[in-house]
Design a protein around this nucleic acid. Structure first.
Lengths: 152, 152
DNA sequence: GGTGAAATCGTAGACTG
DNA sequence: CAGTCTACGATTTCACC
């Protein structure tokens, strides 16, 4: 289990990972060094996997985001493994999940424009191993994102 | 457009936002102060929206992640707005997108266990305004995540 | 967990090429 | 626009209470 103070630290770091141990300590009621010790421990325990910048997709040139549901021709280890390796390797695939439900995988894909998505759909995803069906949904509006887990 | 060096900086910050300007400058071939200046500008231009810790869902106590597709009873501004406000307010809804395709919204939801998801499904999502249909998929395996945009 | 101190590192500004 | 230099402040890390 995670202690109350640790939860507060995680909440702060999730919202802004650039704050110093001293600043976070102020908020959670800990001295800078005690807070720093706890952060180190949270990293070592694997609760914190890393720190990253949140980038603006549009300003980066990615005008379109899609959810793509992919169905494969089978569910054997080999089939899944080969598909997953291909998904890992594609930089236009931002996220990829094996799911229950109608399809086998759900992927989040970033495209620069409609032509780019057409290319990704036709050349990239269709060409990934064992894919027999693709259904994509364009994200028209991002209502919520980056808000992270509720940690207390 | 984004300059080559800026792209490299974004790539580094996306992968690890805790590195200092000096450390990133080393990688991209810039002095600490030049690199620092560019990072400030990238923040001001809105390319960098923020910095966050990547937390481990399982270790936080969220054993299950779901994609939930929601269909509403209409598409008027009022209907969408009321639903979106409810989605924003729920801390178990990690992400929420208005999409084209079969459903109206796709949400990512974190649950502590099966009972918790049952509760979220029955009490929370079904209770959100104007929801007439819910279809959820359990994430069985996260193949790819956190890898961010290809910027360089 | 807190304190305090030392060493290190990071930030920001002025100035030069 | 980048590099250097610089000065100040912040941060990390340690031993000890």
């Amino acid at each position: 289990m995670i202690e109350v103070t640790d939860r507060k630290i995680l909440r702060e770091l999730q919202a802004d990972s650039r704050r110093s141990a001293a600043a976070i300590g102020d908020v959670v009621g800990l001295s800078a060094s005690a807070c720093h010790r706890r952060i180190r421990l949270l990293e070592e325990r694997g609760l914190i996997e890393g720190y990253g910048a949140r980038l603006n997709a549009e300003k980066l040139g990615y005008a379109m985001t899609f959810f793509v549901e992919v169905t494969l021709s089978g569910q054997s280890e080999t089939v899944l493994g080969e598909f997953e390796r291909a998904a890992m390797a594609r930089s236009d695939v931002l996220e990829c999940y094996l799911t229950t439900g109608t399809a086998d995988y759900v992927m989040k894909v970033a495209a620069r424009d409609a032509d780019d998505f057409e290319r990704i759909h036709r050349r990239v995803i269709s060409g990934m191993p064992h894919v027999i069906r693709i259904q994509s949904s364009l994200v028209m509006k991002t209502v919520k994102r980056w808000r992270g887990y509720s940690v207390g």
